[in-house]
């Protein structure tokens, strides 16, 4: 073979490790996913379109994407703020707060779902005060947005935090010595540095929220056309033995998550190259 598949390395085990990786990946992930697309291709275009463009499906997309966007935007703003506070300030209990930021990753979604529903139900800890000022939180689109904010919370914090930690204060000192005010320094020096990481976190929180099921179904109320999210619509169709309908909507969701992978990857690359450039600049400077 003249074409070289792999560069020479002195370490053993390449064939076994890669072979096993590809086999296991194919069996668990690739073949089942391919089977789904195969199943979907047995539908005619009219059948497919009839399901995915029905008014009930369209209402579920509006709710799912709208609430996911609101949740991700809340996390973008508060995630940057929380990361800033955790990196720059010290206060009692800071390490506890820092560790607990990952709770939405570790807490099973069903547990999060019943906990949030109990808090925001009309007689709950926060649901009652909200209801007294006329805001219905649980069993409404607002409840969906609250659950999606919860499950996306760690993404922005965890992608901005390391960038802020690595950022040298010298850049800010330089800006200040050149006469920039604090807000000017933040918006012109700090913000551009953390922007790629913050956007990557935002996109990941959004992608996660769109597919989320467990934490939402309890709080949503699940009324067709009103508070029914797209993953729930798939389950409803399955329960009615409408396999074709479930597959068609699943394919829409799969395509959407595949499309989202591209901007997420680009943002992550942008973020790491930005970080490398800044550290290289500072390293040159200090030498």
């Amino acid at each position: 073979m003249t074409f070289t598949f792999k560069k020479r390395s002195n370490l053993p085990g390449f064939g076994l490790a890669l072979g096993y990786t590809v086999l296991y990946l194919s069996l668990i992930v690739l073949i089942p996913l391919a089977a789904t697309f195969l199943k979907a291709s047995s539908l005619s275009w009219d059948q497919f379109w009839h399901v995915v463009a029905s008014s009930r499906a369209a209402a579920s997309y509006r709710l799912t994407f709208g609430a996911s966007l609101i949740g991700a935007l809340i996390n973008l703003v508060f995630g940057v703020l929380v990361a800033w506070v955790l990196v720059r300030y010290s206060f009692p209990g800071k390490r506890l707060f820092d560790s607990l930021v990952d709770l939405p990753f570790a807490l099973p979604t069903a547990v999060a779902g019943i906990a949030l529903t109990t808090i925001y139900a009309p007689n709950g800890w926060l649901g009652r005060p909200l209801a007294s000022i006329g805001i219905k939180s649980a069993y409404s689109p607002l409840g969906v947005a609250i659950a999606l904010t919860f499950i996306g919370l760690p993404f922005v914090v965890r992608s901005v935090q390391p960038v802020l930690e690595d950022m040298d204060k010298e850049l800010e000192e330089a800006a200040a010595s050149l006469g920039a005010g604090r807000w000017q320094t933040f918006s012109r020096v700090v913000l551009p540095t953390i922007l790629p990481a913050a956007l990557a976190g935002f996109a990941m929180a959004f992608a996660r929220a769109v597919g989320e099921y467990g934490s939402v179904v309890f709080i949503a109320g699940n009324m067709p056309m009103k508070t029914e999210i797209t993953p729930l619509l798939i389950i409803t169709k399955l329960d009615q033995y409408d396999y074709a309908g479930a597959t068609a909507i699943a394919v829409v969701m799969l395509l959407f998550s595949l499309i989202l992978l591209l901007p997420i990857n680009l943002l992550q690359k942008w973020s790491s190259s930005r970080e490398e450039k800044t550290t290289a600049l500072v390293a040159e400077d200090t030498q």
Binding site: G211, Y213, P231, L232, S257, L261
Partner: peptide
């Protein structure tokens, strides 16, 4: 698998 909805 991280980017696929659990239901899917």
């Amino acid at each position: 698998p991280f980017s696929v909805s659990p239901v899917v």
